[in-house]
């Protein structure tokens, strides 16, 4: 961990980060419940424990930047500003969802937020991010591309091809590896000879650092510095954000590959507990502030669920649309 210490710039800053993380936690916990009620079906991957990564990173990026995410991307979409009600409607498969109900949990898209999708294929987002960044460079746009991916993705060829291309062409892309230590049920050290992901990036001559992904200030500061350097023409960078997934990989995972005690130990140093304790200790927020934000997040989730419940289904006749371009009449 070579990122210097970072901290809150004041009460409003602290409240904003806490609000962002509480929104994600409340959303994910409700998704878990709704899955049990069979309102959300199919594959569902929850972000509990990793909230500091998405919230810290998105705070440090600009509205014009492009975002590429993974299949565990509810948190990225919410932190990016994709409206919660449209994310929830997408999980329900409703037409009002951010991808018209076509994608579901793993495929959130939002053109207004330059959110280029969740992606269920491991590592498939990396080369897309390289292409987005190449276009930004060729078109002389001031924006950069931020690409999230998991530790499992570093095993795919796309990771290596993407890092090389980005470095070779000095592209404005920030690779953000969310290292939660497990590629589904397989620990990183069972599948990687070199488990230091930042070291892999340096092998491609990419600036890289490991960051405490449970510390939202550290994430925000590191992403901010890296994004500024990239915007200044320094070429690509990679941050390995060390984090932990509190819930199962998906709703079908009996978690036979890790001890309960390991999960509990990480939960004790969870990003929300750490942040709340610190903000209180520094006198920036009170318990009442925390409860108010929690209540606001809960109310926002209630409203998102109500929106999704009442949203229409796409007409079945429309399901053949968007396979090919539609001719203008």
């Amino acid at each position: 961990m070579n990122a210097p210490a970072a901290g809150p710039a004041g009460r409003e800053h602290g409240l904003a980060l806490l609000r962002g993380m509480l929104r994600i936690r409340a959303f994910e916990d409700r998704c878990y419940q709704l899955y049990g009620e069979r309102k959300i079906r199919g594959f569902l991957h929850l972000y509990n424990g990793e909230e500091a990564v998405a919230v810290g990173a998105m705070r440090a990026l600009d509205a014009g930047d492009a975002i590429v995410a993974t299949y565990r991307e509810h948190g990225h979409a919410l932190a990016r500003g994709v409206p919660m009600d449209r994310v929830m409607a997408e999980l329900y498969g409703k037409q009002s969802g951010c991808s018209r109900g076509r994608g579901g949990s793993m495929h959130l898209f939002d053109v207004a937020k330059r959110f280029y999708g969740g992606n269920a294929i491991v590592a498939a987002g990396l080369p897309v991010a390289v292409g987005l960044a190449l276009a930004q460079k060729l078109r002389r746009e001031p924006a950069i591309t931020a690409c999230f991916f998991g530790d499992g993705a570093v095993a795919e060829g796309e990771f290596h091809e993407s890092l090389n291309l980005a470095a070779l062409w000095r592209l404005p892309v920030l690779f953000l590896c969310e290292n939660n230590r497990y590629a589904m049920g397989t620990a990183l050290d069972r599948t990687e000879a070199e488990t230091d992901i930042a070291a892999k990036a340096r092998g491609y001559r990419i600036d890289a650092a490991a960051v405490d992904g449970m510390d939202v200030f550290a994430v925000e500061a590191a992403v901010g510095r890296a994004a500024a350097a990239i915007r200044g023409g320094a070429g690509p960078a990679l941050l390995e954000l060390r984090t932990y997934r509190f819930r199962a990989h998906s709703m079908f995972d009996p978690q036979l590959y890790r001890d309960k005690s390991e999960v509990e130990a990480w939960q004790r140093k969870g990003p929300l507990i750490t942040l709340t304790t610190r903000l209180k200790a520094e006198g920036l927020i009170t318990e009442d502030d925390f409860r108010r934000l929690e209540a606001e997040a809960s109310a926002e989730v209630d409203a998102a669920v109500a929106f999704a419940e009442s949203a229409p289904w796409e007409p079945v006749a429309d399901l053949a649309r968007f396979v090919y371009a539609e001719r203008s009449a």
Binding site: V122, A123, G152, A153, A155, E156, G157, A183, M184, G185, T186, R190, T191, E192, F252, L256, Y257
Partner: peptide, 29 residues
Amino acid sequence: YFGGVFRVTDGLQRKYGAHRVLDTPIAEG
């Protein structure tokens, strides 16, 4: 080690050893 997402290979690494039942990285190619 995990036994497969659908449990199709469950118990086979324990029975035959990691040299007969290999866990691979996510790298289909």
